[in-house]
Design a protein around this nucleic acid. Structure first.
Lengths: 115, 115
DNA sequence: TTGACATATGTCGCTGAACAAGGTATAGTA
DNA sequence: TACTATACCTTGTTCAGCGACATATGTCAA
């Protein structure tokens, strides 16, 4: 599984934006969600999660707000910004193109020629 | 396009093994092939290509042999080994699982539950 | 009440893949 | 003569992800 580290490269921000785009959420819950949805294949570590969230906030794709529920630990809840929505769309498309390019090479297909 | 650098991470050896598995080929041609099949989306740079080939040879997945055609530059032609064939299968499966996990997270799907 | 565990946030230093930029050399072409 | 494409290679840099650690609270069992 250690190989998935490299496969993950560059995709973690996309995954985080995806999850946050559905509903505002805090870091720990986002990681748990990614973990569960991928059936534990994609494991977001803490040393990756928090710096990634900070970078996304710095770039303006998400905004964080502290929430202090009664009788619970403080959480920083992140919400997707408008710019973040656009960024997610861009990244989703980039992923699609990339995955399709991978299949093209692995499947031995030649690029499509216009008629 | 600069973002595809990160997406490529960890997939380059798989792409190289894929191309070589179809027919023995030399470095420069392998890169050209990947480039063309992906419609120039996946660009294998020389600073990536040659070290990657050396690593694959070191690990025993491919073997290189110098070929000196008449009136042409010498080339190092790489062939997939038996172990390399297994490795390629393993990597192809890993890619499939990873891509499907990505889709699961991005699509908001929950992991399938047994009945 | 003591310990273990899950939750929840964060930082710091390391590693290693991919890249940029450089090198060598030959064949063909303008 | 200069340029381009082919064909091989190395060195130093960069930075995403990770391991390991620190901190703190709520819950639950021994």
């Amino acid at each position: 599984m250690s190989e998935d580290r490299d496969l993950l490269r560059g995709n973690i921000p996309t995954l985080i934006l995806s999850v946050v785009s559905e509903a505002p959420s805090h870091g720990f819950a986002i990681a748990r969600e990614i973990n569960q949805r991928s059936d534990n294949l994609l494991q977001l570590k803490q040393g990756t999660l928090y710096p990634a969230l900070h970078a996304l906030e710095r770039d303006g794709w998400i905004t964080g707000a502290w929430e202090i529920p009664d009788a619970e630990r403080p959480r920083k809840v992140y919400t997707l910004t408008e710019a973040g929505k656009t960024e997610l769309e861009r990244r989703t498309q980039a992923w699609g193109k990339f995955a399709s390019a991978m299949e093209s090479v692995m499947g031995g297909k030649r690029r499509e020629q216009p008629i």
